[in-house]
Every structure is written in structure tokens, then in C-alpha cells.
Design a protein around this nucleic acid. Structure first.
Lengths: 244, 244
DNA sequence: TTGGTAAAGTTGTCAAGACAAATTTGATTT
DNA sequence: AAATCAAATTTGTCTTGACAACTTTACCAA
């Protein structure tokens, strides 16, 4: 079935075969494809080579791997989440009617920031908390949020589990952002963060730094967002609401 | 120097050693570190293992690889490019005082769109062109742009090499966008596009779909942006200019 | 001196085996 | 019938060698 003499690599040939079988309906949506070992045996290649073939299709968002269980044809398209419009993370999910569950990974505490030099609070004290958002039990987003210690005094006593932070800022502190900046990068996670998001250390993660300015102080809120783009599409509406 | 008995993988141990030598100044910024072969020989490991070690640091943006030449300690920080603010791609570079050069990869032509189902012109005709932007001779961004065939009639006769598209839309067609949406994903390139951007097919690419609405027609402009995030940080200013 | 060419050196790609970790399944026991 | 535990299955990780493609360097000839 495969031709080792061909200039086309074996793993690429096998990826084509699998894709053809998916398109033909032999491997329907949501079904499990043969294991890497059986693919390797069937086609007389090594397992790493068979794995490379499925890797190609995983990157193309055609297959989804589940450790200990199998490799599956992706069931449905990614959902869209309007994340970057600054309406506030949680409320943007709500608006779309997506069932959302958030949990606090690290409770709000006042601490001296010494990790990241790009953090505007670097070397100083700030409130910090970390939050995980899940959609349909699928972890999708981690937010590390840093807040100005005087402007947001007492925020460590407010439960942030299910409330929109932007709403709290508006309703409890009577502030609204006057401007800001977002930086987009591709990064990787490791350790506890990777476990929380359910990704491997080799999975590329859309990483966003967000700086929010208020009339009282520039960079009063700084956050880092870690977004899984394999299950969701992060979108942004433009010009929709006029700022007044 | 390395301990094969340790539970810490060899490649990780070596990555730590290299990082220590960079921090200590033994491998200064911009300098070449030992080749993968000599690392492997020095530490008594296979070349793929040595390569894996540098791979870790490449992903951390500490090292930069140059095929045929060597692996280098990254010289300077990434520059920021305010791309997503919709001021227009080219003009946003200009505003930052960054020297920019664009070249047309595919000249403007009217064609039937049959590639991508998410393209709003799918199955219909549209103007299409493709543009590469380079900063300091470093390719950084590819834009595939699709335009409404009637609204932008005759745009194939305008030279788009160095002119901002948003300015042309405003000054020649007297239109300005009324709204829009952007989708953010991580993807991969292959073939000619990967060559143009100077990336490998394994390099994750920040991929943005942009839909622009005008009062005359929704989705009158559709574009796909492919951004190298290893050399540049793509940023976005928020609320800076009031839309009037 | 200059130009071209060959050689050496470097990173990129393809292919593989062995073991670890997670899940599922089935058998056994209560 | 239910719970528990062990075994089998599956994907994840670590390690390796061999060859290909690209750059740089050095040498030789004009």
C-alpha cells in the first residue's frame, strides 16, 4: 500500500491514506481510527512513523488524540468565543449562550511580583489571581490577572469565581478602562498550567498579554491569557459598540 | 557532566547547561553556540538528543537556528508591530517608524473562490491578491486579501505594492468599514507560503481571519493573515482613536 | 585580484525501538 | 450485582542513526 521508494515520505503517504478514508466515510466523524501500533503493523512501518502520520492530521485539526483511549476523527467544528473585545472575558462567553464554568486556580493574594520582567508590577506589590475557564467540561482558557494594589484595595475579599471582573471593576470600584494594549504571541506551557489546560508541553498556546489603562493610573490591570486554539476559535468583534 | 541515571531527561539537562552558560556570559548575545554534532560528542549523547535540547530553548525564544550556519543566542528582543487595530497593516508599521518593505506574491486578479469554505466569497468570484511584508529583510507577515468584485471594481489596476489598502479604500472608493470580526488561531504553513515566510512546516503560525463589513455590503473584504511570532510581537491598541 | 567550485560544517527531515503513563476492559472476589 | 484489581490496549516521551539541504569557507584557476 505504501511505497518506501517514493520521494514522498512514508508518514506523508500514510496521512493521505487516512485522510482519504475519512473523506470516503470509512472513518466517520467521532469514530476511532486504528491505533498507532496496528497502523504500523498493517503498513509495515515503525510506530513513530505511523504516529508522525496522525500528527500531520492532528495539526490540520482533522484528528484528536486521547491518551490511553485512541485517536479520533474530530466530531464537530470549533466554537467561536468572542474573547478579545474587552467586554470582559466571562460576559463574552455568556453573551454567546455558551455554557461556561470557571474555577479559581490561585486565590487572590497580595504579593511581590518577581517572575516576569514584562509585568508592569515587576519588583512591586500587586494583587494576583489565576482563573481557569471551561466550556462543556473542556478547559479552554487560563487567565493570570494582576491588579493595582491601591486602586483595587480589598478585591481579595470579593469572590471572583463566577462574576465578571470587568463588571466588578465598574460596579464596585466605579472605574472603566480608558485604553490599553494587547500583545499576541505563540507560547508553550509546562507543569501545573499545562495540566490545568489539559495540554502537552509541546502544544502551541495562543498567549496574550493585556495592559489596561485607567484615568487614575496606566497599567492598573495586567493579565496574561493562555488560550487553547485546538478546540475553540477566539474571535474579536470590531466597532460593534461605540465607546461613549 | 550529564547523568543518564537521573529522572530528568538528558535533553532537559543539556538545555539547562546551555541556558546557564548563556546567563553566565559564556555564550554572549548573538554568538554561535557549539553545533549539534559537537554538543552530542562533548556530552556523549546522540545528535537528535542534543537537538532536542536546543529545541527547548528555541521555543523559549532564547536561541535562533540558522540552517547551514549554526544556532545562535538571540540578539535582541522582538519588536512590536501594531497589527490588529485596523488602522491598516502598512500604515501601522509606518506609524511605529519601522522600516517596512512589501512585495506582491500574487498579483490582483478576479477569480472564482473554491479553496476555503470559511471564505465568504466561497463559490463566487472575488478579487484576490497576496502580499508579503518584511521588516529589516526579515519576512514577517503574509496577507491573502479577497475583495468584493463589484464594490472594488477596477482595483486590479491599482498598484498595491507600497500603498496602504485601507487608504486606497478610503481615498479611491470613498468607503470605510462599519464593523468586522477577527478570528485568531494557530496554524501551520507549507509549500510556497512557508518558503516565502522563511519558516518550516513545523513552525506554528499565528493565523488571523479578518472579516470587514461596509454599509454597502457585509464581508466586502476578507483577509487571512499569517504572522511569524518568533521574531515579532503583534500588538493591538485599544480605544486609542475614537471612531467618528 | 577575482571568480567559480569543491569540501567541510551545520541544521532539517525521515525513520526506528524501548519504556512510561493513562485508559479501558475483563476477571475475580465479596 | 457491585466493587476491586490486574491485564491489555493506547497514546506520550526519550533516545538513536542515517541521509538531505543549505551555508560558509577555502582553494584553485583564470
Amino acid at each position: 500500500m505504501l511505497n518506501p521508494e517514493s520521494p514522498i515520505p512514508l508518514y506523508h503517504q500514510l496521512a493521505d491514506v487516512i485522510l482519504t478514508r475519512i473523506r470516503s466515510g470509512e472513518y466517520p466523524r467521532g469514530s476511532r481510527i486504528p491505533s498507532e501500533n496496528s497502523l504500523a503493523a498493517d503498513y509495515g512501518i515503525g510506530r513513530p512513523t505511523a504516529r508522525q502520520a496522525t500528527e500531520v492530521l492532528v495539526r490540520k485539526r482533522v484528528l484528536v488524540r486521547k491518551r490511553g483511549s485512541g485517536t479520533f476523527v474530530r466530531a464537530r467544528k470549533e466554537k467561536e468565543v468572542d474573547l478579545f473585545s474587552l467586554a470582559g472575558t466571562i460576559s463574552s462567553f455568556r453573551d454567546k449562550g455558551i455554557s461556561l464554568r470557571t474555577c479559581i486556580l490561585e486565590k487572590t493574594r497580595l504579593e511581590r511580583i518577581s517572575q516576569n520582567r514584562e509585568n508592569p508590577f515587576y519588583g512591586e506589590k500587586a494583587y494576583f489571581f489565576s482563573r481557569l475557564s471551561c466550556v462543556e467540561d473542556m478547559p479552554v482558557l487560563i487567565e493570570d490577572i494582576y491588579l493595582h494594589p491601591e486602586l483595587f484595595s480589598g478585591i481579595d475579599r470579593i469572590d471572583l469565581e463566577m462574576r465578571s471582573l470587568s463588571r466588578i471593576v465598574k460596579e464596585e470600584y466605579f472605574m472603566r478602562p480608558a485604553g490599553g494594549k494587547q500583545n499576541f504571541r505563540i507560547g508553550y506551557l509546562s507543569g501545573e498550567k499545562a495540566r490545568s489546560l489539559g495540554v502537552l508541553s509541546t502544544t502551541p498556546i495562543l498567549t496574550v498579554q493585556r495592559f489596561l489603562h485607567f484615568s487614575q493610573a496606566r497599567n492598573a490591570v495586567y493579565s496574561e491569557l493562555f488560550c487553547r486554539t485546538d478546540q475553540f476559535v477566539f474571535s474579536q468583534s470590531l466597532f460593534q459598540k461605540r465607546e461613549t
